[in-house]
Amino acid sequence: MIDVKINGENKKLEDKINIADFLKNNNIDPIEVTVEHNSEIVNQENITKVILEEGDTLEILRFVGGG
C-alpha cells in the first residue's frame, strides 16, 4: 500500500500506478481533465509514463467552461 494525496485528500493505493491507469480506474476520461502531479502539469502524451508513488500529490480538475 502507498499513501498519496488526491485533490487534497489522503488516500491509500494498492501499489504504484501510472496516471492513465489511475484515471481509468476512477472512470475519468483524460481529455476532460487537467492533471497536476506534484505541482507539475502532466501532458496528455505523458499520462502513461508518469507514475504515482508514495507521498505524491495529484490534482485532477475537470475542464469546466460552460455558462
Binding site: L61, R62, F63, V64, G65, G66, G67
Partner: peptide, 8 residues
C-alpha cells in the same frame, strides 16, 4: 464556469 453539477 459550470458544467453539469459542477462549478468553478
Amino acid at each position: 464556469a459550470v458544467c453539469e453539477f459542477e462549478g468553478i
